[in-house]
Design a protein around this nucleic acid. Structure first.
Lengths: 198, 198
DNA sequence: TGGTTATCTGAACGCACGTTCAGATCAAGC
DNA sequence: GCTTGATCTGAACGTGCGTTCAGATAACCA
């Protein structure tokens, strides 16, 4: 006797997140274009058609993942206490950035790699959120320059350089490896502090 | 009257490089998996079948591009004078890395993005070449630590951090923009020098 | 318990993919 | 100028793609 339609225990609150999680992992591992809807469905344990209960199409699924990641990033950053002198603000930023990014390496990966697979208007949205985040670091660097504790000839470039350096941890860090997250934070914070110091 | 086969002016010395160049540009812009052989062929002005005079398959084409890029990188680096104290060696490395990478942004891009589309044994080759390059910077940092001019707690991590920061220039630099290459080199060299200074 | 809605299957659609190959045409050397 | 080999066309192959949808079944609610 064939099971032909709605399956036992099926629930959108369960299947929905599983679809997103499977897509995230597969996109990170193989790339958006290389992953088929059928492959995502098979990971979830469902037929391909069922995915369309959760996304209007494949592109929207990718965008939703990137958008969610950027929203999470900005929300987590907004929850951080952010008062004080430029030096302590920078230290908080550095430690936050590393911890946040090491917690979700797949989302970080696709947020950098799959931008080009976004339709132009979707791309613009993500790009805008990213610039907002970069702008926060830039503001800290400017504050420090004004306070006289930092010496950066170009705050915008310095912000991009620091973020590139910090985000790079996701390419080599392996949990359970030689270094713990706090140790990594300490190493990078030391380098950043010296790099921008007056 | 239909032109049916070999076309006028066709030459492997001409078509071959054009195939590689078209593949490089398209892979960089849209990603390996998203670019079809037909699309590459159309860019070259040829039918898809003709590409197979120049590569056994699509995967080999990608690998050849990455391999060529890494070989170019190591060869160019090897041509550099590399004697002297750690400080001047580091400065040479930084300026070289920026100049080299800004000259071939597409190759840099795919060398980082399309690694996951390499078959395991091809991946291992590229990974090995990359480690060799990273090792050269690491050695400079160790030398500087021994000389007492650098203070880096972990030379391997510091090397990766510096390379990530430097390579990041390719994501924002636009030729004809606000900054010239020498200006960019100066900004980054200043930050790197301070970051690792004793 | 019965009716309604949410969820999923299975099949189908047209299309594009990577790759192969026989045959046509051009370039080059004698 | 003819022959030979290099180069390309055009068609074809099987496969897998994203997406749609009618119908079947489970979950839910009155």
């Amino acid at each position: 006797m064939a099971r032909m339609a709605r399956t036992q225990g099926s629930h959108s609150e369960i299947t929905g997140p599983r679809v997103r999680e499977a897509a995230l992992q597969l996109f990170a591992k193989h790339g958006y274009a290389a992953v088929s809807m059928r492959r995502i469905a098979s990971e979830v344990g469902v037929q391909a058609g069922a995915l369309y209960n959760y996304t209007p199409d494949k592109q929207a699924l990718l965008f939703s993942l990137l958008r969610g990641h950027m929203d999470d990033l900005l929300a987590a950053r907004a929850e951080l206490r952010d008062a004080g002198g430029a030096l302590v603000r920078l230290e908080r930023f550095v430690r936050f950035h590393i911890a946040f990014h090491l917690e979700r390496p797949e989302a970080v990966f696709i947020s950098y790699m799959e931008l080009r697979n976004l339709e132009p208007e979707n791309f613009a949205v993500i790009e805008g959120l990213r610039r907002e985040y970069e702008g926060q670091l830039e503001a800290i660097l400017r504050q420090g320059a004004a306070e006289g504790v930092f010496d950066v000839s170009d705050a915008k470039i310095a912000a991009l350089a620091v973020i590139a350096m910090l985000t790079g941890v996701t390419t080599w860090y392996r949990s359970g490896g030689r270094l713990s997250v706090p140790e990594v934070q300490q190493i990078y914070w030391t380098m950043v502090r010296k790099a921008v110091a007056a």
